[in-house]
Amino acid sequence: MNKIVSHNIRTIREMKNLTRDFVAGELEMTYSGYGKIERGEIDITISKISRLADIFGISISDLLFFDVSYFFNNDAEEKIDDQLRIGSNSDIKTLRISRSRLMDFQDKKLKNRV
């Protein structure tokens, strides 16, 4: 589980375009200490997970059970846009990323699996 959470943390940080230095500073940690979290070399406390979720602007469950396909589902985005045009009162937050950045992200992910 620790490796999955560490991978999620790194992925979300990169998607949010945040540097390791920035996140380490927000956590009041050293750069190298934060790097150990992203590499899964140390156990992360619930309080740090909670703080990371706050820094990233997501829920703890989104951090723990992150699914990149959720953020890039074009059909879901169109449905959300339709709901907003209709005047729905829902508080839906989407992460919009250019297609070229998505392709770079997916290529990088595939290379890491090999």
Results as ranks from 00 to 15, higher is better:
residue 12 I to P: 03
residue 12 I to C: 01
residue 12 I to K: 03
residue 13 R to F: 03
residue 15 M to F: 09
residue 16 K to H: 11
residue 16 K to A: 05
residue 17 N to D: 13
residue 17 N to S: 13
residue 19 T to Y: 02
residue 19 T to S: 15
residue 20 R to K: 15
residue 20 R to Q: 15
residue 20 R to T: 12
residue 23 V to N: 02
residue 24 A to W: 05
residue 26 E to K: 15
residue 26 E to S: 11
residue 28 E to Q: 15
residue 30 T to S: 15
residue 30 T to H: 11
residue 31 Y to T: 06
residue 31 Y to N: 14
residue 32 S to L: 11
residue 32 S to G: 13
residue 33 G to V: 10
residue 34 Y to Q: 07
residue 34 Y to I: 04
residue 35 G to I: 04
residue 36 K to G: 03
residue 36 K to P: 02
residue 38 E to K: 07
residue 40 G to F: 04
residue 40 G to Q: 05
residue 41 E to K: 11
residue 44 I to M: 12
residue 45 T to Y: 06
residue 46 I to E: 07
residue 47 S to F: 12
residue 47 S to G: 01
residue 48 K to N: 13
residue 49 I to M: 14
residue 50 S to Y: 12
residue 52 L to F: 02
residue 53 A to K: 02
residue 54 D to F: 00
residue 55 I to E: 06
residue 57 G to N: 08
residue 57 G to Q: 05
residue 58 I to W: 04
residue 59 S to N: 01
residue 60 I to Y: 06
residue 61 S to P: 00
residue 62 D to P: 00
residue 62 D to Q: 14
residue 63 L to N: 05
residue 63 L to T: 09
residue 65 F to C: 11
residue 65 F to S: 06
residue 66 F to P: 08
residue 66 F to V: 01
residue 66 F to A: 05
residue 67 D to E: 12
residue 69 S to T: 02
residue 71 F to G: 14
residue 72 F to E: 02
residue 72 F to V: 04
residue 73 N to A: 06
residue 74 N to M: 09
residue 75 D to S: 08
residue 76 A to E: 10
residue 76 A to H: 11
residue 80 I to P: 00
residue 80 I to F: 05
residue 81 D to H: 12
residue 83 Q to I: 06
residue 84 L to M: 12
residue 86 I to A: 13
residue 87 G to S: 05
residue 88 S to W: 03
residue 89 N to C: 04
residue 90 S to F: 10
residue 90 S to I: 10
residue 90 S to W: 00
residue 91 D to G: 08
residue 94 T to F: 03
residue 94 T to P: 01
residue 95 L to V: 11
residue 96 R to G: 00
residue 97 I to W: 07
residue 98 S to N: 08
residue 100 S to E: 14
